[in-house]
Design a protein around this nucleic acid. Structure first.
Length: 676
RNA sequence: GCUGAUGUAGCUCAGUGGUAGAGCACUCCCUUGGUAAGGGAGAGGUCAUGGGUUCAAGCCCCAUCAUCAGCUCCA
C-alpha cells in the first residue's frame, strides 16, 4: 500500500498527495481564496465498483441521515482522504453545500436549545428543501417566545465560531452514553441505523455533541443567515399513536441577501395562494356558520365553474361517455353491499334515520353508476359502458386537514366508470390517458408526471382479485402508457387493495406537484355487486371496472387553476373578459353602452364602470381584478367606432376598430388561447 | 384527531383592564378626466361563540367553533 494517493480534480488534472491529506489541504494548495470559500467536498472513489447512491435524493429520510454511504458522497473538509478519488470542492453557490449548511444550522439550533433548556431530548434534525428542523421532546411545550430566545442564542453560537469536529467511537459506547442521558430517540436511531461492532460518528461543536453521519460546514460561523420560522407538532416515528414531539422549523442561507430573497419569494407564493385570490377576486368563500370544508361558489367563481363543467361534459359526450345523475343520499344497505360501510365509515357522514330506513350521504359515485349498469342485462355488444357524472360527494375529513379548495368535505368529482371486457381494457385506458392529456393542455399545464401504482406480488393476500387479473390489469396500464409514449414511474405496493392505478400529477408554475387525474382498476366492486354480461359464448362473465377522474375534483382543480394563473385567467376562463372605461361619463357613457351591447352580442363577458370615479381609478380597479382587457372610450374612439385597448400585463396597446377587437377576442376564446 | 398560533368594520390591520380605531371598500356631495388611487362628508362593529374572574374585560382564565403552520390521515 503506497503512502501516496491520487486526487482527480474536476478539470481532469490529477494530484498525487500523501494519504490522509484533507480536502481543505488541497483547497489551500490551490488558492487561499478557494480555501476560504469552500464549504464541503464531494468525493467519488476512482476504483470502486460499489453502486453510486442516488446522489440527487435529498437526505431527508432518517435512513439517509445515518446510514453509512459508499461511492460518491459528501465529506467534511477536514476528512482525511484515504484512497484515490475524484474530488469536487463545493462552494456556497452549490445547492448541496446549502443543504449541508442547513443541517449544520439544525445542530446549532440543538446547541442553543440544550444550553437554554438542558432537559430537552433530541430526535433528529435534517435539512429540508426550505430549510431545516429539529424534532425534540420536552415535558413543557416550547412557545414562540422560546423560539425567539433560541434564535438569539443561535446567533451567539455562530459568533463563537465553533469548529464542527467529527469523532468516532464504538457503537456500544454511544448507546451507553445516550441511554445514561435518557436520550431515547438517539438510542433508537443508533440501534436502527448501525450494527453491533460498527463505529459510529459524532459531531461536536463547542460542548454540544450529536450522533450524526455528517458532513458539516467547517464551523458554526459559516451559517451566516438564518431564522426560526415555526413550531409544530410531529409524532415520534411518524406514528400518531406515539408520543408527540415538537418540531422547530427554521431556514438558513449563506447570506442575508439570500435569506431576504427567500422570504420575498414566500410573499409571492402567498400572493398567488388561491385562498387569498379567492377573496380578492370574489371567487368563492367558506362560511363558518355553514361548516368547515364546504365551498360557496360566488358568481365569478361560479362562472368559471360553468365553463369548466361545460367543457368537460361536452368532451365526455364527444368521447363516447353517457352522462348520468345519481342521488346524493342512498340507503345504508347500499353502502353495506359496496363495502364502504365497513372500510370507509370513518370518512362518511353518519347515517340519517328516516321512516323507512337509514340513509347516508355518498362519499363516492361508484355504487350509483353500478346500479345503473345492473338495472338491465348487458351483452358484450353493449360494452364498453361509460357513465360520467359531475357527482357531489361528501367525505368527513378530520378537522385540521382542510385546506381551501384543495382539501374539502364536500366536492364535485368529474367521475366516470367504465365497464368493459378484459380485451377492451387497454384501448379504454389509452382513451382515458388521451382525455387526461387533453384536459391538462387545454387548461394550460405543460408539465405533468405519471405514476403507476402496482401491487406487491409477494403479498397476494393483501389484495382482492386473482393474480392473473392483477397482472393483466398492470400490463394493460403499462402498455397503454407505452403506446402513448408517456414516461412513468412505477411504484410497487402503492396500489389500493382493489386494483392498480395510474395517477397524473400536475406540475404548476412553482414546480409543485398536485395529484389530480386518476385511472383506477377495481376488482372489488364488480364482484361485490355481482356484475355480469353475456359473452359471445353465451356464458355470463364479470366485466372489468375502471374508475376515472380527470379534474379529480372540480374544487381542487379550480384551486390549482387559480394558483397556476395567479388569478390572471386566460381569456376563455376569465369571468369578466373586458372592462369598459368611459373617459367622461357625461360625454362617453352613451358610446360605452353601445360598445357593451355589441361585445355582449358577440358573446363576451363585459363590465362597464359608470361610477363617478375618475378614469385612472377605474383602470386601477379593473387592473386589480386582473381583467384581460380594459377598453378606454373617449372622443377619438366614439368618432371612429374604435376602442383603445389596454392589455393585462402589457398596458396601453393603442386603439383598434371595435369590430377587429371583437374578432380577435372571439378567436382567442374559441381556441382556448393562453396569451392575449 | 394531535402540537402551536390566530380570530376586532366588507377587506388589510392597530388597539396590554377604564367611553371601540386607521387605511381601503361602501353611501352622498363636489370634481368630467386620455391609460393603476382627485377632494370632502357620512354610515358601518353582539371585538368568533358560551361561561368565568373583576368595581370594570376586545385585553386575564376555561370550554367550544373556525382559520393558519405543521404532524397524522386522504381505501
Amino acid at each position: 500500500m503506497s503512502d501516496q494517493i491520487n486526487i482527480q480534480l474536476p478539470d481532469g488534472s490529477v494530484r498525487e498527495v500523501p494519504r490522509g491529506t484533507t480536502p481543505f489541504d488541497i483547497a489551500t494548495g490551490i488558492s487561499p481564496r478557494l480555501a476560504a470559500a469552500v464549504v464541503v467536498a464531494r468525493i467519488k472513489p476512482l476504483h470502486t465498483t460499489a453502486p453510486a447512491p442516488a446522489a440527487d435524493e435529498p437526505a431527508q429520510s432518517e435512513e439517509a441521515m445515518y446510514a453509512p454511504e459508499a461511492g460518491e458522497r459528501l465529506v467534511d473538509l477536514s476528512a482525511p482522504l484515504t484512497e484515490d478519488v475524484a474530488l469536487e470542492l463545493l462552494k456556497e453557490n452549490d445547492p448541496a453545500a446549502l443543504r449541508v449548511a442547513r443541517h449544520s444550522a439544525a445542530h446549532i439550533m440543538a446547541t442553543a436549545i440544550l444550553e437554554l433548556f438542558p432537559e430537552t431530548k433530541l430526535g433528529h434534525g435534517p435539512a429540508t428543501d426550505q430549510g431545516f428542523f429539529y424534532d425534540v421532546y420536552r415535558e413543557v411545550a416550547f412557545t414562540e417566545s422560546d423560539l425567539a430566545l433560541i434564535e438569539a442564542r443561535m446567533h451567539e453560537v455562530v459568533a463563537r465560531d465553533e469548529p464542527f469536529v467529527r469523532v468516532e467511537e464504538t457503537r456500544e459506547q454511544g448507546l451507553t452514553d445516550y441511554a445514561a442521558q435518557g436520550e431515547f430517540m438517539k438510542v433508537h436511531f443508533i440501534e436502527r441505523f448501525t450494527k453491533p461492532g460498527d463505529e459510529i460518528s459524532l459531531y461536536k461543536n463547542g460542548s454540544f455533541t450529536d450522533f450524526c453521519r455528517g458532513p458539516h460546514v467547517p464551523s458554526t460561523a459559516r451559517v451566516k443567515a438564518f431564522k426560526l420560522t415555526s413550531l409544530a407538532g410531529a409524532y415520534w416515528l411518524g406514528n400518531e399513536n406515539n408520543r408527540q414531539l415538537q418540531r422547530l422549523y427554521g431556514t438558513a442561507f449563506f447570506s442575508t441577501k439570500d435569506l431576504d430573497a427567500h422570504f420575498k419569494h414566500l410573499e409571492e407564493i402567498k400572493a398567488r395562494d388561491h385562498r387569498v385570490l379567492g377573496k380578492q377576486l370574489d371567487l368563492f368563500s367558506i362560511q363558518e356558520v355553514a361548516g368547515a370544508g364546504l365551498i360557496f361558489w360566488h358568481p365569478k367563481g361560479g362562472l368559471i365553474r360553468k365553463i369548466m363543467e361545460d367543457w368537460m361534459r361536452d368532451e365526455c359526450v364527444r368521447r363516447g361517455y353517457q352522462l348520468v345523475y345519481t342521488p346524493h343520499i342512498m340507503r345504508r344497505e347500499l353502502w353495506k353491499i359496496s363495502g364502504h360501510e365497513s372500510h370507509y365509515a370513518e370518512n362518511m357522514y353518519p347515517p340519517m334515520e328516516l321512516d323507512d330506513a337509514e340513509y347516508r350521504l355518498k362519499p363516492m359515485n361508484c355504487p350509483g353508476h353500478i346500479l345503473i349498469y345492473k338495472n338491465s342485462p348487458k351483452s358484450y355488444r353493449d360494452l364498453p359502458q361509460r357513465y360520467a357524472e359531475l357527482g357531489n360527494v361528501y367525505r368527513y375529513e378530520r378537522s385540521g386537514t382542510m385546506h381551501g379548495l384543495l382539501r374539502v368535505r364536500g366536492f364535485t368529482q368529474d367521475d366516470a366508470h367504465i365497464f368493459c371486457t378484459p380485451q377492451q381494457i387497454e384501448d379504454e385506458v389509452v382513451a382515458c390517458i388521451e382525455f387526461a392529456q387533453s384536459v391538462l393542455t387545454t387548461f394550460g399545464f405543460a408539465d405533468f408526471k405519471v405514476e403507476l401504482s402496482t401491487w406487491d406480488p409477494t403479498k397476494p393476500g393483501d389484495y382482492t382479485g386473482s393474480p392473473e387479473n392483477w397482472q393483466n390489469a398492470i400490463d394493460s396500464l403499462k402498455s397503454a402508457l407505452t403506446r402513448k409514449g408517456i414516461p412513468f414511474r412505477e411504484i410497487p405496493g402503492e396500489a389500493a387493495f382493489y386494483g392498480p392505478k395510474i395517477d397524473v400529477k400536475l406540475v404548476d408554475v412553482l414546480g409543485r406537484l398536485w395529484q389530480l387525474s386518476t385511472v383506477q382498476f377495481d376488482f372489488n366492486l364488480p364482484a361485490r355487486f355481482a356484475l355480469e354480461y353475456t359473452g359471445e359464448d353465451g356464458e355470463k362473465h364479470q366485466p372489468v371496472m375502471v374508475h376515472r377522474a380527470l379534474f379529480g375534483s372540480v374544487e381542487r382543480f379550480f384551486g390549482v387553476l387559480i394558483e397556476h394563473y395567479a388569478g390572471s385567467f386566460p381569456l376563455w376562463l376569465a369571468p369578466v373578459q373586458v372592462g369598459l372605461v368611459p373617459i367622461s361619463n357625461e360625454k362617453h357613457l352613451a358610446y360605452a353602452e353601445k360598445v357593451k351591447q355589441q361585445l355582449e352580442a358577440a358573446g363576451l363577458r363585459v363590465e362597464l364602470d359608470a361610477s363617478s370615479q375618475n378614469m385612472k381609478s377605474k383602470i386601477r380597479d379593473f387592473g386589480l381584478q386582473k381583467l384581460p382587457y380594459i377598453l378606454i372610450l373617449g372622443d377619438k374612439e366614439a368618432a371612429t367606432d374604435s376602442v383603445s385597448v389596454r392589455v393585462r400585463a402589457k398596458g396601453d396597446t393603442g386603439s383598434m376598430p371595435l369590430a377587429d377587437f371583437i374578432a380577435k377576442a372571439n378567436e382567442l376564446t374559441s381556441t382556448y388561447a393562453m396569451e392575449l
